[in-house]
Amino acid sequence: MNDRIRTDIAHNARVWNYWLGGKDNYPVDRAVGDQVTSLHPSIGAVARADRAFLGRVVTQLAAEAGVRQFLDIGTGLPTVDNTHEVAQRVAPDARIVYVDNDPIVLTHARALLTGSAQGATEYVDADARDPEAIVKAAAETLDFSRPVAILMLGILNFVLDTDEARSIVRTLMAAVPSGSYLVLTHPTDDPELGGEANAEAMAFWNANATPPITARGRADFASFLDGLDLLEPGIVSCARWGAPRAADVAQYGAVGRKP
């Protein structure tokens, strides 16, 4: 067992895995996950909507925009339809780099590293707060002179300082050329998406689990996409991006293209 793995405190990657119906979690994760669900009954729907958003976006970018390189930061534990599986189903030559610094994700990395023979699937052990290190490591697999789709699904909410989160995004997007994409999801406390429940649920989470998390409103979420051209339908609940009839969940989603 990796000595960095704590089984006495709930961790986001494992709780998220639990909400998605996975088995890579411990009793403490399930207990905290159940308590969060009691405070925020739709959190399971959020997790599923976020995963479905990933599939729709990666499919569209690979099939319609011709993207062949994906940098997935904050990978989480492998489930079904991981980024490389979705992308390489459309384009077998797609190249995917996963980034995470969670030790339990690292122990499952081999499950991720099974892509197509024509493409590439690699894993980088790095922190989202060190974008320069991410770019340097990813450059061993990705060609940063060609467009890259950078995915940050449910990851900037663990960067509590909004200015720092903006700086991370700016650094990453500065490293990729015109025609690249930024794909984001982020929990919100905005009432129009039913986000009120996030306040109590996140307070409980921050007292009982790791890493600490924050919700953000639409304006702060939009600021991460400054300077990018938003793909339709713009900034919406991630459940409704590419699925306009879906019910809202309290998680924004958007895709921006670097002009």
Rank of each mutant, 00 (worst) to 15 (best):
T185Q: 04
E232I: 05
N206L: 09
R218A: 13
A219L: 12
C238N: 11
W19R: 01
D8M: 04
A209T: 12
G115Y: 00
S38E: 15
V15L: 14
R6E: 12
L153R: 08
E64A: 09
V105P: 09
D130I: 09
A215W: 07
D163K: 08
P233L: 09
V15Q: 08
P211G: 07
I104P: 07
A63D: 10
A91K: 08
T141Q: 02
N206D: 10
A13G: 12
P259I: 00
R110H: 11
D163H: 06
S237F: 07
E232H: 13
L142D: 03
V249G: 07
T210C: 12
W16H: 15
P92E: 02
E140H: 13
A174S: 09
S237Y: 07
P27V: 08
N17K: 10
P211A: 06
G66K: 00
R240A: 06
P177S: 05
P187A: 14
M173T: 02
V236L: 06
R240H: 05
F53C: 01
E232L: 07
V255K: 10
P187G: 14
G55W: 03
R170A: 10
R129C: 11
A87I: 05
H84W: 01
A31R: 15
T171E: 06
P131W: 05
A175R: 00
P41M: 03
H40L: 15
R68P: 00
L151S: 08
W241Y: 10
I134C: 06
L61I: 07
I213E: 11
F70G: 01
G234P: 08
I5D: 10
L231K: 07
D189Y: 09
V57L: 06
E232D: 15
V15M: 14
A31V: 12
N198F: 13
D161E: 13
I9R: 15
A247L: 08
R216D: 02
V90P: 01
A246N: 04
R170D: 11
A137R: 08
P191R: 08
R216K: 10
N208Q: 14
R95P: 05
I5P: 06
G74M: 04
W16Y: 15
D24P: 02
V86F: 04
F221H: 06
G179W: 00
G33M: 11
V97P: 03
G154H: 05
R48P: 05
P92F: 00
V58I: 11
V86R: 03
A201F: 11
A139F: 02
T7M: 10
V58K: 07
D8S: 13
A63K: 10
L151R: 06
R14N: 13
E192Q: 14
T171G: 01
V159W: 07
G66Q: 02
A47R: 02
A197T: 14
D93M: 05
A250R: 03
